[in-house]
Amino acid sequence: MTAPPDRAQSERAQPERALSERARDDRAQADRAQAGWAHAPGRAARSIHARAAVVAEAGPGGRTRLTTLRSAPPLTLRQTGPERVHLVSTAAGPLGGDHLELDILVTEGATLELGSIASTLVLPGPGRSAMVVTAQVAAGGRLTFAPEPTVLAAGCDHAMTVRLALHADASAYWREEIVFGRHGETPGRCHARFDATVDGRPLLRQEFTVGDPAVDGSPAVYGDARCVGNVLVAGPGFTHPEPGVAPGRAVLPLAGPGTLILALAPDAVELRRRLA
């Protein structure tokens, strides 16, 4: 080989990159139009700051009551069962510039399951978008957090932050799925940080970066996968899966009281199958 390997590689990738950039620009334009249409006029120009919250408390007889269920569009929360809430997105996005927060509190002995109706499509906009989920689960509490995947559209610049604080006797099943663009789409940028603690001690800390040339496509990070996902199972209230490894999937007992199911996959359907 005559050229340094890195340069040789990037030269080979050039024509393909030019094409995908054009496709990305076209799609981004369509996305902006769609976002403007889906929401109020001027939506794309004004960023949203929204903070939604849900509090689950154990009532008399141990039945869980949702004592707080505060929606903040586009984060709209709907109770769909005695202990179940779904996030119903009432606008496209988040778009660049949006700052969305969701606070979850499961008090002593209560149970909460949180899902979402559809996947979250992260779109570009003026600035960075952010989604911050803060969850606390008290002793004997049991939280299932299993929304649909976050899909990173072309040109997006997104930050996802999760802070999960568990009491030693609390349990959690927490799923996170990131899809690198829609079909054939080169994703924008994303930085995700997940911090789970048990009684203040660290259980799992993970950051995922998408859109960093050092990381994208590296056989050390995602390889040729198009999505990455995790399920954290913590505490005594859930069955922890058996440790093992299969193509694109590993079940990893953590040093602390938890088990991580980790998966890489070519598409979201396969990812979900591997995380099951």
């Binding site: 993970q206 950051e207 050390a220 990070v221 995602y222 999937r249 590993a250 990893l252 998966a263 890489l264």
Partner: peptide, 11 residues
């Protein structure tokens, strides 16, 4: 920093 490398974990 806590940057995960899922492929390294699998490997």
């Amino acid at each position: 920093p806590a940057h995960a490398a899922p492929a390294l974990d699998l490997l």
